[in-house]
Design a protein around this nucleic acid. Sequence first.
DNA 1: CAGGCCGGTCACCGGATGGTAACTAATTGA
DNA 2: TCAATTAGTTACCATCCGGTGACCGGCCTG
Lengths: 130, 130
Amino acid sequence: MEYRTYDASVCVMTKIFAMIGGKWKPIILYLIKNDINRFGLLKRSMPKISKKILTEQLRELEQDKLITREVISATYPQVIEYRLTESGTSLRVLIDQMLDWGVNHFRNEYTEEMMREFQNKKSVLEVSVS
Amino acid sequence: MEYRTYDASVCVMTKIFAMIGGKWKPIILYLIKNDINRFGLLKRSMPKISKKILTEQLRELEQDKLITREVISATYPQVIEYRLTESGTSLRVLIDQMLDWGVNHFRNEYTEEMMREFQNKKSVLEVSVS
DNA sequence: CAGGCCGGTCACCGGATGGTAACTAATTGA
DNA sequence: TCAATTAGTTACCATCCGGTGACCGGCCTG
């Protein structure tokens, strides 16, 4: 008997998760979509991310062509702007759908306790959403 | 000036990725959807996964209510069947959409070299797809 | 001329994630 | 009696991802 076999190293979905599964990446994509598009703005919007990690995640998103990095002013206080690529924008749509699924899933499948714990962490599902 | 702030620990998308971002999980969901629903079948379909990891990932998917585990026969050679829950089924639809996005993204944004490397790894995009 | 703002880099560290190999129970068939 | 099948468990190990804190250059303001 033969089986069609599968391997994670060759799985498209695994590659996609590698691109956007990073701890802060969905949030970063969400923020950039909403014109929070400069390093400092992003940093201030995510108080718990470090500069190093933020830089890393931005570089990776750029390499994967989900965002672009544009140097507006190289001197002075530097100004650098990030934007979603077309591909990045279309992905963000899918992420939003998945988000809806998640909100629903948690509502249906999770116990009241879990929901309460959720609330305690101030995770307002619909707001701090991505 | 005030900013709405965001934190990964409270981000729904981060939770979703934690659920299905595991190295083998998209593949497992795909296989179970296609009635490759027993431990041994799954193992043989993913030659490079170890029993321990397969068990772990299955348990996690079960805890997150994406699959169910049903003991068909406890004695003999045991028989245990896994199935997608309703929630798991609806998620798999979204994963398939994301997959389409991925195939497209790789085609458009990646260089020819990367595509060639891809081919060398026998990653036939449309087939070993999830 | 010290300090702040901007957008980073660098060396180092720790915990989670994934992986290996050996071992388990219970039953059937040769 | 020995091997094979089923579906795991256990102890241990290695790698990687994310995180911390210090530091950088250049300009402007007090």
